[in-house]
Design a binder for these strands. Structure first.
Lengths: 148, 148
DNA sequence: TTGATTGCAAATATTTTGCAGGCAT
DNA sequence: ATGCCTGCAAAATATTTGCAATCAA
């Protein structure tokens, strides 16, 4: 909730609406609310958490709409499901490119990091076992500065 | 279901019973059945799949027991939860050491691979973002030889 | 105006809990 | 004999679907 936070709203959010429009989705109030929350949060969020936050801005929203909206955001490539040791109900805004994530086990704060040079390594592992590689996940868990 | 398969029963299974005994669990028939299935399968399995296989050998088993038994196996470090893009209900026998997994998206066949040299890389990422790293996941998805 | 989207209620699916009886130790 | 483990039923969670009303385009 700092300067960066405000900035991200201005930069990312209109972009999200464009992509959603392009996908043929209608820009409704619930969709805007849910998008805002996810576009501007630097931690992973599950549907109930999004629902609770959304209710504050738009009390008549239902959790079903949150589920359906998050599905659309995922389809549009705007958010990704994040897998944690104890579950995988949470989502985080997608990065353009890699999906290498560093997540705080306590508060859920997340950051993307670079790991381009790993692609060759993955291909090699695939060859070694006779697999045709389609995708990979690299995720690191720990405690962020605030939670240590 | 080849030569290796039979061999793994002989090598791993007694070891599993020892570890379970050591943890203070009682060696019951349902626990043996569920252990056998998981110890000897080279694909990831979810509780319902284990349940179906278990029922063939021991019809009176209930799915609740499968859940509870798999929880024990996880506690004993004998199986690990495996996360896939579409869910994380499946488990796979644990490796001694790393948890770097290569999984077939079609049939669930899985293999562990080496990636020791990555630990330093992970530590560096942690330092860079101010996180204290506790754990990591590296998983590769693709199609195995049979499923290509 | 048109049909995609919403919110409610209900249905599914998945996992957990309570409890009396059974079985490993 | 003790008390952990089992299987059933029921409860708790999480997610999806049906449908009439609403609202973006």
């Amino acid at each position: 909730m700092n300067q960066n936070f405000q900035q991200k709203i201005l930069v990312n959010y209109p972009n999200w609406m464009d992509k959603l429009r392009l996908k043929g989705f209608r820009i409704t109030r619930p969709l805007q609310i849910v998008s805002e929350i996810l576009a501007n949060c630097d931690s992973i969020l599950n549907p109930s958490e999004v629902y609770l936050q959304a209710k504050e801005k738009y009390p008549r929203i239902g959790i079903v709409t949150v589920y359906r909206t998050m599905e659309k955001l995922e389809q549009a490539g705007l958010i990704d499901r994040v897998h944690m040791p104890d579950g995988c109900q949470s989502f985080f805004k997608a990065s353009s490119g890699h999906q290498h994530l560093l997540v705080c086990q306590n508060c859920g704060k997340a950051e993307y990091f670079e790991g381009d040079n790993l692609n060759l390594f993955f291909k090699n592992i695939g060859d070694q076992f006779g697999y045709k590689i389609n995708d990979h996940w690299l995720q690191i868990f720990g405690l962020c500065k605030n939670c240590q």
